[in-house]
Design a protein around this nucleic acid. Structure first.
Lengths: 243, 243
DNA sequence: CGACGGTTTGACTAGGCTCAAAGATCGTGG
DNA sequence: CCACGATCTTTGAGCCTAGTCAAACCGTCG
């Protein structure tokens, strides 16, 4: 991996969309154009709040976001994650309101979503992206409903890995994870303490390495079998890489 | 309640769609026409299976369906429910594959989904319906991740109540629930045994009555406050009834 | 150095799970 | 109309996973 290459901030997003549906000239140009007028959002900022009107849709170019549900008594649930190339706030009707708060987990770069009508390839890529969002939600429901702490952790890391791969942000089971253990616990419906113990056990078992912000799953395929993880798949053709 | 009135099987669905976006003439006509060629699916049948191609979208006219995720070792998760007026398998791109199995929980009547292009009102109603589906998934994630057994149960029943109300299938906290305790347990990520105990406690507390297939939430508003439940809301205008 | 955000540890508790069996309920057919 | 089987609900006893509370540790940034 050539780590020091200067990459345009929208490259990962571009690669991800490309992997959903091959982008034709107009599609690629539209994204380039949109990315030129990108906006920076700092860590912990909220893009929009639950119940607020949604003002236009965005494309996430860099960084991680999360949908967060907060209960009256302070309990928190991270409902879903936005990774580079994901669509944020993409609603197809007027007067839409956010059903959860969207927060930046890291510093984030976003741009306005190009009009899908500009290219059939874009229309298709966006539709597939939405379907994937739903598939990830479904996977998360199953994770929280029926997996134990260890299974939740591994299944979750596998999902992140599989989502970062098409962006070029993960390779050989290794990727950067900018999440605190507390955030992961809030995503997995566990307490930070218990998540920490679960993590340590996974390390002791040799399933993964976790140094600073970098995770390595030593054998993603074996791990997937072990916890019954299946890769999200919403489309018959273009086969996801590695399928 | 006039219990013996003969109602057309698609009336509940019609009412629900109407509540999402006022239907104009062409929209209502299109639904009537589609409903004329309805199809019956018996209990326990599967409309489509995880990983299969999705062949067209359907409108659920009568009965309940569920998306079911089954783990290799037999654990089951009911991911979401389809109630009258809900859209099933509505994907907006070719080659879509189901990300979970859709099963009929009761005998079910469905019809093909009219082409949304027939009317802007239809387009809008379908888009809102999709957004609601997502909101229900988000609510379910939060339920499973951060609520305890009692809260899960009440929060879940409140959601069903609020969804059945616009169909005219619920009133004054009362509705028919065609689910076994096992199914509810599989939805709420609990064991049937524990769900049963939780239910009994709720009855003893006077929170609800459960006779045969009929549930009554004695005070939905109070219950909502008690468990921190908030009604799903994806659109600024037409205000949902009771808001 | 001290403060801060994050991770790790320990000791104890409790909510929910397991296994197993007994009771209800309901549809069906004799 | 009752008997039967299947399905669903209820109960009991013991266990275990994950939660709670509290404190120590660690790195890093000012």
């Amino acid at each position: 991996m050539t780590a020091t290459v200067l990459t345009a901030p929208h490259l990962a997003a571009m690669r991800r969309l490309q992997s959903l549906s091959p982008l034709d000239g107009p599609a690629a140009a539209a994204i380039e154009r949109a990315a030129d007028r990108s906006r920076r959002v700092e860590r912990r900022a909220e893009a929009f709040r639950e119940g607020q009107d949604v003002h236009g849709a965005f494309l996430l170019l860099e960084g991680w976001t999360a949908r967060i549900r907060q209960l009256p008594d302070g309990r928190r649930q991270l409902v879903s994650f936005g990774l580079p190339g994901d669509l944020l706030g993409y609603c197809q009707f007027d007067g839409a309101r956010a059903s959860s708060t969207m927060a930046a987990l890291t510093a984030v770069t976003i741009c306005h979503l190009p009009d899908p009508a500009l290219s059939p390839a874009l229309t298709r890529a966006f539709a597939i992206s939405r379907a994937l969002d739903e598939a990830y939600l479904i996977a998360h429901v199953t994770r929280l409903g029926r997996l134990n702490a260890h299974e939740r952790l591994i299944d979750f890391l596998l999902e992140l890995y599989e989502r970062l791969e098409p962006c070029g942000l993960a390779e050989a089971g290794r990727f950067l994870i900018p999440l605190t253990q507390e955030a992961i616990a809030d995503a997995l419906g566990l307490t930070p303490v218990h998540l920490n113990r679960t993590l340590q056990e996974a390390r002791r078992n040799g399933e993964l390495t976790w140094t600073g912000r970098e995770v390595t799953l030593h054998d993603p395929n074996a791990a997937a079998v072990a916890v019954g993880h299946t890769r999200a798949r919403v489309c018959a053709f273009p086969a996801p890489s590695g399928a």
